[in-house]
């Protein structure tokens, strides 16, 4: 067997996570190290983009190039990174609030452009960093500091949302199943196009007991064990409806025939147009009025 070029520990930075002891994000980070090592790209060829939130601190804990941006904007920023340098491996991570509330408007467009990006949402159904307010994935009725009498609204279903927008790769994982989670992250990264993994990553400080890893261990079910065919988009949508009730892990949908990525089309266009380039000092001659 070949020794891997990079081991999980090569992706671990010296910065110590500030997360609360027991936070689900520690496991996610560990899974990510493993997935990156399995992929084997050197850390300096990885760009890791996030928004703001506890979860969004994650790029700093890796040895990759990181960009811990502003709340909700990781998706457009990551698209700029990837289009500027398609050779990079670009991973995005953030929270449920970052991704589906303030950044929600960007999701459809990231999906439809089909740029080869991997988006990991660390879904804890709460706003961790701002201390426990309602999030767009909080279950209806949840009592939080901003919903002391219980929330009146239904949560977003991130899985259905992504499937409906047409994402080519949609999966769900939990750090309660570390090997499963890191394999899913790896598979998502390998998928040539926009890929999404919803990671149920509990908040120990503000989360409910039934959302913790111990509860996950009791109730998680792999989609494979249900006999799900991950090339069947409709079946995937049907199963995704159970978000918030069941904890299904695995690949909901993976497009068996991935369409060309946006950046590959960009490359073709650049190649075709480059013949028409003018020398720098002749650019203005295009405006001469003959």
């Amino acid at each position: 067997m070949n020794a891997p070029l990079f081991q999980a520990k090569d992706y671990k930075s010296e910065l110590k996570p500030i997360w609360c002891p027991g936070c689900g994000d520690f496991g996610v980070l560990q899974g990510l190290y493993r997935a990156l090592s399995a992929i084997g790209r050197p850390p300096h060829e990885v760009a890791f983009i996030s928004g703001i939130g506890c979860s969004s601190r994650i790029p700093g804990y890796t040895t990759a190039y990181g960009f811990n941006t502003v709340h909700g904007r990781s998706l457009p920023i990551a698209q700029g990174v990837k289009l500027a340098n398609p050779e990079l491996l670009v991973v995005i991570a953030g929270g449920d609030g970052d991704g589906f509330s303030i950044g929600g408007g960007h999701v459809a467009h990231a999906v439809r452009r089909n740029i080869d990006l991997t988006y990991l949402v660390m879904d804890n159904q709460v706003y961790g960093l701002t201390k426990g307010q309602l999030s767009p994935t909080s279950p209806k009725g949840l009592e939080t500091v901003t919903s002391p009498l219980g929330s009146l609204e239904d949560p977003i279903n991130p899985l259905l949302y992504m499937l409906a927008y047409g994402a080519g790769f949609v999966a769900q994982a939990t750090p309660a199943d570390m090997p499963g989670m890191s394999a899913l992250i790896e598979e998502a990264i390998r998928y040539p196009g926009f890929s999404f993994v919803n990671i149920q990553s509990p908040c120990v400080t503000f989360g409910e007991d039934e959302q913790q890893l111990k509860a996950h261990k009791g109730k998680m079910k792999t989609l494979a064990s249900l006999g799900h065919d991950s090339t069947n988009q409709l079946a995937a949508m049907d199963l995704a409806r159970a978000y918030g009730k069941e904890l299904y892990t695995g690949v909901f949908y993976k497009n068996p025939n991935p369409p060309p990525t946006y950046e590959s089309l960009v490359k073709l266009r650049q190649a075709e147009q480059s013949k028409k380039a003018r020398a720098r000092h002749q650019i203005l001659e295009a405006y001469l009025q003959k």
Binding site: L75, P76, I77, Q79, G80, V81, N85, G105, H106
Partner: peptide, 20 residues
Amino acid sequence: LQCEDEIAGLGATVGASFAG
């Protein structure tokens, strides 16, 4: 990249700059 709004427009721009 024609983006979905101006935030995304400048966001992608700063991302591309980060990428060099």
